[in-house]
Design a protein around this nucleic acid. Structure first.
Lengths: 135, 135
DNA sequence: GATATTGTGGACATATTAAGTCTGTAATTA
DNA sequence: TAATTACAGACTTAATATGTCCACAATATC
């Protein structure tokens, strides 16, 4: 019941782009260096962010990645879903009973979790970052 | 970001014991049959529930498992923690910054999730089970 | 247009964790 | 004593996450 490393890379990449250069292209090499992860692996994660429409990529010299217009309103949940998909925590409930009380209880709690992540936006976090805060 | 099958087996076993025979010993064979899982595997899960103090086991003929006194107040979170441990969803945040905003936001949302699970007790669910409801 | 630079795609390999099995042992009852 | 039942640990298998490699496409600069 943990978020994957890939999701963490994605979230930190988004926040890094937001804080440092939301309107300029940044190459994967630089992004990877900041997070001590291989560029080839991070590029796969970035491609998912591109496909889900929250990051723009440009090939070629001086290319790289930047955030879309309106990135401030992207939520943490948006990013998590882009990387992890949308399966519920109780998806592996095994009795195939649509009225399973356990499944319902877990889903109810999960919705509390998802709602809060959906209300936390990249813009909020970017505003909280001071010069001394690491991302 | 899903609960393990083992956790689901544990939750359903607890609820089954609560609804059918909270004060009588039930063997692992019967419990396993109900959930279409092998007895040997389920016994490992049951041992965890015993060690964490929510189930009582008795060896020997006519032995088996039963719930402790006061089982009504056992929460779903208690069971989940007994099987999955207590690592946080953001445990694999990789920048080792104690002030990481992403980690804090995830933990805040996670606490909403945990709080709700902590307030849902086996007794509540057992009361909701009608004759027609499968567990 | 040639070349260097950068992202994309897919196959592949490795690592980690979850799921499940097997076998022997200990405890209890009839 | 014999049957029954839980416990423990080593082991295997399956599933998933993580990471690499390489060929290719797109773009900018010269």
């Amino acid at each position: 019941m943990k978020l994957s490393k890939a999701t963490n890379y994605a979230l930190h990449t988004m926040l890094f782009l937001a804080v440092t250069s939301p309107h300029e292209h940044v190459g994967v090499a630089k992004l990877a260096e900041k997070q001590h992860v291989s560029p080839t692996y991070l590029s796969k994660i970035l491609t998912k962010l591109v496909k889900s429409g929250m990051v723009i990529s440009v090939s070629g010299a001086n290319g790289g990645y930047k955030l879309i217009q309106g990135w401030e309103k992207i939520s943490l949940l948006d990013v998590i879903k882009a990387i992890e998909g949308l399966s519920s925590m109780s998806d592996n409930c095994l009795n195939h009973n649509p009225n399973c009380l356990i499944q319902k209880a877990i889903e109810s709690a999960e919705n509390k979790f998802l709602n809060e992540l959906n209300q936390t936006h990249m813009g909020d976090l970017a505003n909280q970052i001071g010069e001394t805060s690491l991302i």
